[in-house]
Simulated assay, not measured.
Amino acid sequence: MAFALGMDAFSIGLGMGMFRMGWRRVLLIGMTVGLFHILMPLLGMAGGRFLSGTFGTFAGYAGGILLIILGIQMLITGLKGSGDSLIAPVGFGMIVFALSVSLDSFSVGLTLGIYGAKTVLVLVCFGTAAALLTWAGLLLGKRVQGMLGKYSVLLGGAILFAFGIKLLGIERLFL
């Protein structure tokens, strides 16, 4: 389950890795995503049975909307050809990124809380898998960015946008 939830972070990290960033930034982003993948299921597990139905659906929609916004912003930046980005994987942009990929782990945490899962084990697995998969996605995106040059931001934006559409479940409108 931790690997499946971390695959969101990998996919989105692939897109975000197309921004120019140093190794320290990659390390910090992975650690932040890992931390969010610990905090969100912890909050979910604490929420319990009462909130499960309500927030499970909301988390998917909120994550999808955040990813679409990030994707559109990257596409606009790529089309303008400017290196300045409104939302980049630094500061607030990094928090938005980490939150968008960890919202689904909140709803999973709600379910696991209902079934009495071992909290520490779940949180360590979720955080570790998310951090490792984020680093893998960012590093692969960084390599692709070097090959694609200025088009890498467009590709990264398209990946984030498509993933957001998929989370919202409205991909049928585009096919």
Rank of each mutant, 00 (worst) to 15 (best):
T111Q: 12
I76W: 10
G71P: 00
M94W: 07
R24L: 09
S102G: 09
L168Q: 12
G141F: 07
L42W: 10
G113L: 11
T134G: 07
D84L: 13
V124R: 12
K80T: 15
Q145P: 03
G22S: 07
M21A: 05
G83L: 04
G127W: 06
I114P: 01
A62Y: 13
L139Y: 13
G56N: 07
G64S: 06
E171W: 10
G44M: 07
G81C: 13
F106E: 08
M45Y: 03
S82G: 06
G164C: 01
M45T: 07
M1G: 08
L168M: 15
A98G: 09
A62R: 10
I159L: 07
A131D: 02
L27Y: 01
I65K: 04
M1A: 10
L27F: 09
W135G: 03
I87P: 00
A117H: 05
S100F: 09
R25S: 10
T128S: 14
I165C: 04
G56W: 04
L167E: 15
A98W: 12
L79Q: 12
L167M: 15
L148W: 10
G91F: 13
G127S: 05
K150C: 02
D8K: 02
S100I: 07
G34A: 12
G156T: 03
G44T: 07
L42F: 11
V153Q: 03
L175K: 09
I65Q: 06
D84S: 13
K118G: 07
L99A: 12
G109V: 05
V153W: 01
R49G: 11
T32Q: 08
G53D: 13
S52L: 15
L66C: 08
L86M: 15
F36P: 00
D104C: 03
L70K: 01
L155G: 00
T134V: 11
T77I: 09
G91R: 14
I68W: 01
R172I: 13
K142W: 11
T111R: 09
A4Y: 08
I159N: 00
F55N: 06
G169D: 02
G15V: 01
L103F: 10
M45W: 05
V153M: 11
L139F: 14
V124F: 15
L35W: 03
F163W: 11
I76S: 02
I87L: 13
S105L: 05
A9T: 09
I159G: 00
T128G: 12
F19H: 11
D8V: 04
I165V: 14
G60N: 09
L110W: 06
F97K: 01
R25N: 11
L168H: 07
G141Q: 07
D84T: 14
I95Q: 08
A9N: 11
R172Q: 14
I76A: 07
R49N: 14
M40F: 08
V120I: 12
L5P: 01
I38Q: 03
M1R: 08
L51F: 15
G17H: 01
L75A: 06
D84H: 14
M31S: 09
V33R: 01
L173A: 13
K118D: 13
M16D: 04
F50A: 15
I87M: 05
G93V: 03
Y151I: 06
L66H: 05
A158V: 00
I159H: 00
S52T: 15
L70N: 01
L66I: 11
M74T: 01
G78H: 00
L28G: 00
